[in-house]
Simulated assay, not measured.
Amino acid sequence: MLGDARAVTVFTGAGISTECGVPDYRSPGSPWRAHAPIAFADYLADPAMRAEAWRRKFAMDDLYAAARPGRGHRAVARWAAAGRVRAVVTQNIDGLHGAAAGPDDEIVELHGVGSHARCLGCGDRHELGPIRSRFESHGALPECACGGIVKSASIAFGQSLDPAVLQRAVEASLECDLFVVLGSTLLVRPAARFPDLARRNGARLAIVNREPTPLDREADLVVHADIGDTLDPL
Rank of each mutant, 00 (worst) to 15 (best):
V10Y: 09
F11Q: 11
F11G: 01
T18K: 15
E19H: 10
C20V: 01
C20E: 07
V22G: 07
S27G: 07
P28D: 05
S30M: 12
A34D: 15
H35G: 05
D42G: 09
Y43H: 11
Y43R: 11
E52R: 13
W54G: 02
R55N: 03
R56T: 00
A59T: 01
A65P: 04
A65K: 13
A65M: 07
R68I: 03
R71V: 05
R74V: 02
R78G: 06
W79H: 08
A81G: 06
A81N: 04
A81K: 12
A82Q: 14
G83T: 02
R84N: 07
V85G: 14
V89H: 13
Q91Y: 07
L96K: 07
L96S: 04
H97D: 03
A99F: 06
P103I: 02
D105W: 13
S115H: 10
L120Q: 09
C122F: 01
D124Q: 13
D124G: 07
D124F: 03
R125H: 08
L128S: 00
P130D: 02
R132S: 01
S133I: 09
F135W: 03
F135V: 00
F135M: 01
S137F: 02
A140C: 10
A140N: 10
E143G: 08
A145S: 12
G147L: 15
G148F: 09
I149E: 14
K151D: 13
A156E: 13
D162Q: 11
V165M: 15
Q167R: 15
Q167S: 13
A169T: 04
E171D: 15
A172D: 02
A172V: 01
L182Q: 10
T185A: 15
L186V: 02
V188S: 12
R189E: 11
A198F: 06
G202Y: 04
L205Y: 07
A206I: 03
I207L: 05
I207H: 04
V208E: 14
N209W: 03
E211A: 07
E211D: 14
T213V: 06
D216N: 00
E218K: 10
V222E: 00
I227T: 04
G228P: 00
T230G: 06
P233L: 05
L234T: 05
